[in-house]
Design a binder for these strands. Structure first.
Lengths: 236, 236
DNA sequence: TAATAAAGTTAGGCTAATCTAACATAAAAA
DNA sequence: TTTTTATGTTAGATTAGCCTAACTTTATTA
């Protein structure tokens, strides 16, 4: 059984791994994320190494073991399921869910999580558009890509906007776009990256600048299988 | 902000208070309930006294202050709301809810509890038939009375049985009784305490022995206002 | 009422998780 | 390649919550 604190260390390691697109994590980096001193991280690392949850050598980088990763993903799964629950069932806003989910993610009960998952009808993404690991520990890819990262021929789903100016938002509406809309990228101009997209059967042309301000997720890849940080190798 | 452990001490004090029908709690008693050593309780008591959550003198008895009681009731409220949630929404059984609620009761979020309360439609009793304190901290009485404790002319609600033998349970069914049924006590024979009760409009006679094996709650009294442990002063 | 038992307290120790301050190593820059 | 900076480590201390063992006070009972 892992302590509340140990779980947080593993979760932070996983998060950094995702953000960096690399398995290698530094002591200071981890200390920053957890808001503790590097010395503290060092102590904990010894314990986690002892328990075979991380691998690291003196002055080297930290990586999660398979078992450490499994535990971290389990915590992440709980966190994101609870966020989804709070958002959908209890009218919490985007900014409110995180803090409470930080606490709820440590509740120990397999049955509770299974029931929660079922209750929410097995959601794949949390309210922030981040993917929820499934029971097997598989995670759909979501690197906070923008529409401009999507390859020609592929589809994605809009989850958020980067620019919140009203002029931009009005433009978004005009194109017929909204949260959760499926967007297919039909073509991309080589010269200026002008995109032709299709939303609800309607085709539109949008500039690169526009595309860079639309956050999307691609729902078809599992981390570690076919996707990298910048490129998403979908076969639909 | 109270720690997880401090909350548990306060909750245990409140629980003992209810069970004893007295505000006076002993160190060993508390240690037994919390499954720690008396010395540990002693240490914690100093801290709780310092924070003005309990009152006690050396070698004396422990009592909750108004503030300590308020905090304890808040934890109890959360515990019982979560039990109700697990039971009603997630198909947990009676025996499963407690362990998980022990964890959930420490989640800090006023909004969460308000929404939970609303989501469950402001329940007054948890799955065990124990009363859920309302937002103001008022608790409806429930001393795990049996049907034989109910005064003539009063009504109560069946919440459990004491005897689990099949012969008894078959008798219960025959009388038309079940969990959550409203029971009105119409009369009581002085000589042998034979009761005439009414359930769903049907009158039956039951023996004292039978009545002593039916747990009921009376839903109309607030602790500290009109009720004592053995007698429930209802004005309906 | 004196002896015994029960209840409560104190002192000293342990572990998990944190800190500061000083030190060691690796990486970057001059 | 040497110096400087960034990164990582160690030692020693602190706090919360727990323990055991020895002691003190209160309650019980012979």
């Amino acid at each position: 059984m892992l302590s509340y604190t140990e779980e947080n260390y593993l979760k932070a390691l996983l998060r950094i791994t995702f953000e960096n697109g690399s398995e290698q994590v530094g002591t200071n980096e981890l200390a920053n994320v957890l808001v503790v001193k590097p010395a503290t991280v060092n102590d904990m690392l010894k314990k986690l190494k002892e328990k075979e949850l991380v691998e690291y050598k003196k002055y080297g980088k930290i990586t999660l073991t398979a078992n450490g990763r499994k535990n971290a993903i389990e915590v992440l799964r709980k966190h994101r399921l609870w966020e989804t629950f709070l958002y959908e069932k209890f009218d919490f806003t985007w900014d409110e869910v995180h803090e409470v989910a930080e606490q709820l993610e440590h509740i120990q009960s397999g049955k509770l999580i299974d029931k929660l998952d079922k209750f929410l009808d097995y959601p794949q993404f949390d309210p922030h558009g981040d993917p929820i690991p499934n029971k097997k520990g598989e995670i759909k890819v979501n690197f906070k890509k923008t529409l401009s990262d999507v390859e020609v021929g592929n589809s994605c789903r809009m989850v958020a906007v980067k620019d919140n100016s009203s002029s931009f938002l009005q433009y978004v509406v005009k194109v017929g776009l909204g949260i959760n809309n499926e967007i297919k990228v039909l073509s991309k101009q080589e010269y200026d990256a002008l995109l032709v997209i299709e939303v609800n059967g309607v085709k539109s042309s949008v500039s690169q600048k526009f595309a860079e301000n639309i956050f999307v997720v691609c729902q078809n890849c599992i981390i570690g299988k076919t996707c990298s940080k910048t490129k998403c190798e979908i076969e639909k």
